[in-house]
Amino acid sequence: MAAAAAAGAGPEMVRGQVFDVGPRYTNLSYIGEGAYGMVCSAYDNVNKVRVAIKKISPFEHQTYCQRTLREIKILLRFRHENIIGINDIIRAPTIEQMKDVYIVQDLMETDLYKLLKTQHLSNDHICYFLYQILRGLKYIHSANVLHRDLKPSNLLLNTTCDLKICDFGLARVADPDHDHTGFLTEYVATRWYRAPEIMLNSKGYTKSIDIWSVGCILAEMLSNRPIFPGKHYLDQLNHILGILGSPSQEDLNCIINLKARNYLLSLPHKNKVPWNRLFPNADSKALDLLDKMLTFNPHKRIEVEQALAHPYLEQYYDPSDEPIAEAPFKFDMELDDLPKEKLKELIFEETARFQPGYRS
C-alpha cells in the first residue's frame, strides 16, 4: 500500500510507478496490472468513496492506442447498470505532455475469474450472474457493438453480487458484411471463450460470437473449470467437437473457408456428449439454455433477447427493466489503419471533457 500523499506533496508512487492523480484522489492501494497499465484503488475526496484507477501508458504502440481509444469512446457513450462506466479521466493539459491516461471507475471487490478459483456457486448465484451478463449484453448488442472478449476476468463483482462487464478494448461495431482481413492475426481474445466460426472463417462476425462466450462462462460457473481449455488453435476446435459432436452437413455448409471445411470433413465422426453427463448436478433449465448458447452453427445460436426470456431466468426476466441503447454506435473511421500519432490526438480530444474549465 502506498503511503497517503500529504496535501501538495506531488504524485504518489505505487510499486515504483508514478500515479499522478492528486489532489482529488489519494490513499492509493495496488490492485493489479494488465498488459499496459496498473490498477489501484484510491480515495475520492470529492465523492467520499474509494474508486478504481487504471493507469494506461499506450502511446508507444499502435495496438494499445487503438484499444484505449475504443474503450474510452464506447464506455463514455454507454450507460447501463451492468456495464462499468467511466467516472473521470485524468491526463496532462497538453498533448505533448500526455504520456499516461488515468481512467477512474467504480471500485468492484472482485471478478468472476477470482471468485470461481475459490468458491463453488449455488444455482441461485449462477442464475443471477447469468441474468446480469445477458442484461448488459442486450444493451451492448442493441448499440450494434460486439464485445468480443467476454470471459470471467472481464466480469466485475461486488459483495452485493452486482455484476458489471468491463474491458471493451477489443470491441467492434457489428459488421457481418465487412471482410476484416487479418482478423485472426489481430484477434487476441482469450482462445477458450472463442466461437468456432472465428477459427473457421475470417469473413465478418456477428453478435452470436458473444453468446458463445457467455455459454462458455455459464459452463464454467457450473463446474469451476473452463469447458474448452484448448492449448492452441486446432486443439481448441477438437475440444469443442469432442463435446458438441461432429457438425451436420448443414452446419458445414455455413463454413465459407474450404480449407477449414475440408479439415472438419477429414475428422472421424464424434457423438455429442449429453450435458447432464458433463454437469450431473446442474439445473435442467440451465443445461437447456447452455445447449442453445453453445450451438456450433452461429445462425442457430440463441440471441440475447431470447436467452433473457428463457425459463431458467424467469424469476428475473423483465423486458421493461432491460434497457437498450438510445442509438446504434458508430465509429467515424476504422481505427485499425491509423498511425499511433493520430490515435493519440483522438484520445486527447475524447478525454477533453474531463479537463478543468472544459467548454463543449
Rank of each mutant, 00 (worst) to 15 (best):
T26P: 05
V273C: 07
L258W: 11
G136K: 04
R277C: 09
R225F: 13
V214P: 01
P323G: 13
H239E: 08
K340C: 11
I90P: 15
Q236P: 15
C161D: 07
I243Q: 10
Q355M: 06
K99Y: 09
V101E: 00
R194H: 03
R277T: 09
K99L: 15
A52C: 04
G37M: 05
G32Y: 04
N276R: 11
H299S: 13
A42F: 15
T94M: 10
Q119I: 13
H239Y: 05
L290V: 11
L146H: 08
H180I: 03
K272S: 11
N224D: 09
V145T: 12
V39A: 07
D44Y: 00
S57K: 13
E314D: 03
T68A: 00
K48D: 07
L289W: 04
L222R: 03
N47H: 07
Y233D: 00
L244F: 07
D44P: 10
A171Y: 06
S360N: 09
N87K: 00
L313P: 04
T351S: 00
L137D: 02
P226C: 06
I324R: 13
K54D: 04
H239D: 02
G22W: 12
H147E: 04
R191P: 01
V21R: 06
R148C: 02
D210W: 03
D162V: 04
L121E: 04
C127V: 08
E250C: 11
Y316F: 00
S248C: 09
T26M: 09
V21W: 06
Y102G: 12
V51N: 15
L200N: 01
P93F: 15
N238W: 03
Y128W: 13
A307R: 05
T63H: 05
T351L: 09
E303F: 15
T63G: 09
Q315S: 12
E250D: 04
F279A: 15
L234G: 05
N123C: 08
Y113L: 10
D162S: 14
Y187E: 04
Y30E: 10
N262V: 11
L107S: 05
I347D: 02
K54S: 05
S29T: 15
N238V: 10
G37C: 04
N154R: 02
K285W: 11
L335Q: 01
P11M: 02
I31M: 11
F19M: 08
V173Q: 02
L69T: 10
I126R: 07
K340N: 00
H232V: 08
L346D: 06
R70N: 08
P339Y: 09
W192S: 02
P11Q: 01
K55W: 04
E71N: 10
V173K: 02
H120Q: 02
V46Y: 15
P23I: 15
L184Y: 04
G22Q: 11
H141Q: 06
Y193E: 01
E250A: 12
L184E: 01
E60G: 11
S266P: 14
P23S: 10
E96L: 14
A3I: 15
K340E: 01
E334T: 14
Y316D: 09
D44H: 10
L76E: 11
L278R: 13
K99F: 09
K54R: 03
N123P: 12
A307L: 11
Y131D: 13
G169F: 07
L107I: 09
L121T: 10
W212T: 03
V214Y: 01
R194Q: 02
E71R: 11
Y131V: 07
D318P: 15
K285E: 03
A174V: 00
Q66V: 05
M38N: 08
G85M: 12
L287N: 09
R301E: 02
N47D: 03
L76R: 13
K344V: 10
I74Q: 08
A195I: 06
R277G: 05
P274E: 07
I89P: 12
A6L: 04
I217H: 01
G357M: 06
N281V: 11
E186N: 08
S223C: 03
P93A: 14
L146C: 06
L150W: 03
V145E: 00
I72S: 04
A52W: 03
S29R: 01
F296E: 05
P226Q: 05
F168S: 01
E349K: 02
I126F: 01
L157I: 09
D100A: 05
T181S: 00
C254K: 11
H180P: 04
R277P: 11
D124E: 01
I165N: 00
I74H: 05
G245M: 04
P298D: 14
K272A: 13
I347E: 01
K99A: 04
V214C: 09
A52T: 01
A282D: 01
D337M: 12
P274H: 02
A9V: 11
I72P: 12
I84Y: 06
K300L: 10
T295H: 11
I165F: 00
V214K: 02
P274I: 13
K99W: 13
L157M: 05
R359F: 13
A195R: 02
E345M: 11
S360Y: 01
L338P: 11
K114R: 01
N45S: 08
W212I: 01
L241Y: 07
H61R: 07
N276E: 06
D167T: 04
P280A: 09
L234D: 07
I243F: 01
A327F: 15
D337P: 11
R359E: 06
R67C: 13
A307N: 10
Q62M: 10
W275C: 00
P298W: 12
D167Y: 00
N45I: 01
E186V: 03
R15F: 09
L313M: 00
R50H: 12
L69E: 13
T26A: 09
S266Y: 13
L184Q: 00
Y113F: 01
G136A: 14
F19I: 00
N276H: 12
K203P: 02
K270I: 11
E341W: 15
A189R: 02
D44C: 11
Y128E: 06
T351W: 14
I227T: 11
L150S: 04
L112T: 11
N297E: 10
G204N: 13
L155A: 08
G204L: 06
T351G: 11
L156M: 02
L264I: 10
P152V: 11
D210K: 02
S246W: 13
R91F: 12
N257H: 08
N82E: 07
E250L: 14
L267E: 10
K207C: 07
Q306T: 13
E322I: 15
R67E: 02
L134T: 07
A189C: 09
N154Q: 02
I198R: 03
L156P: 05
F348P: 07
E12T: 14
N154Y: 00
D283Q: 14
S202F: 04
G32E: 10
K292T: 08
I347Q: 03
A143M: 12
L258C: 12
F296K: 04
V104S: 08
P298L: 05
D124I: 13
L150I: 12
P298G: 12
E341G: 04
V46G: 10
V49I: 13
R24Q: 12
F329C: 12
N45C: 08
I240S: 05
S208H: 10
R24M: 09
P58S: 04
F331H: 08
R359V: 08
Y30W: 15
S57I: 11
D175H: 11
S153M: 09
L150M: 01
M38R: 10
V104D: 02
K330S: 08
V304Q: 02
Q306H: 02
Q119K: 07
D44L: 09
S213L: 04
N144K: 02
C40H: 15
H269T: 04
N158K: 00
G136I: 07
T110W: 07
S223H: 11
Y131W: 15
D88F: 15
A352Y: 15
N123Q: 08
R148V: 02
T118H: 11
Q132P: 02
D179W: 10
L69P: 06
A282C: 14
L265D: 09
I90D: 14
S202C: 01
R261V: 06
M108E: 10
R172G: 02
L308H: 11
D283Y: 00
Q66Y: 09
R194K: 00
S266D: 13
C254Q: 11
K151P: 06
S246Y: 15
A174F: 14
Y233E: 03
G136H: 09
V49T: 12
Y187I: 09
F129W: 10
Y233C: 03
V49D: 11
L112R: 07
L112A: 11
C254N: 10
Q306E: 12
L28E: 12
A92C: 15
Q306S: 14
R359I: 14
I83E: 09
I211D: 01
K114A: 07
T181Q: 07
D162M: 14
I165V: 04
